[in-house]
Computed example of a mutant assay.
Amino acid sequence: MSKPKMTEENVRKSLISAKKVLQKKGGKAPSVSAICKEAAISRAHVYASFPQLIDEFSATARAARKKQKSITIDGLKKNLKDVQNANQLLARSCIELRLALTQLQSKYQRDIKSKRKVGGRK
Rank of each mutant, 00 (worst) to 15 (best):
L101N: 15
T7I: 01
Q23I: 15
A91E: 14
R116A: 14
Y47F: 09
K5I: 11
F50M: 04
R43A: 13
A39K: 00
Q109R: 04
N87L: 09
T102G: 11
R92L: 15
H45S: 12
L99E: 15
S2W: 06
Q84P: 00
L22C: 02
D55Y: 05
S106A: 14
A18K: 00
S114Y: 09
E56T: 05
A39E: 00
A29P: 03
Q109E: 14
S106K: 11
L53N: 01
S70T: 12
E38R: 04
C36E: 04
L76N: 12
D111L: 15
L15Q: 04
I54Y: 04
F50D: 03
S58F: 06
A48T: 09
D111V: 15
K113I: 14
I41D: 00
I54A: 04
A29Y: 05
V32Y: 01
L76Y: 10
S31E: 12
D55E: 11
T60E: 15
K24H: 08
A44Y: 11
I41H: 03
S58G: 04
S49I: 01
I16F: 06
T7R: 02
K67C: 02
A61V: 07
N85Q: 09
G119Y: 14
K37L: 04
I73R: 05
T60W: 11
D74A: 12
I54H: 05
K28D: 11
N79W: 07
Q109W: 07
P51K: 01
I54M: 05
Y108G: 09
R62I: 09
H45I: 08
K19D: 05
R92V: 15
L101Y: 14
R98Y: 14
N10M: 11
K78G: 00
L104D: 11
T60G: 03
Q88L: 13
V46M: 01
I71C: 05
K69N: 09
K37S: 03
L53S: 00
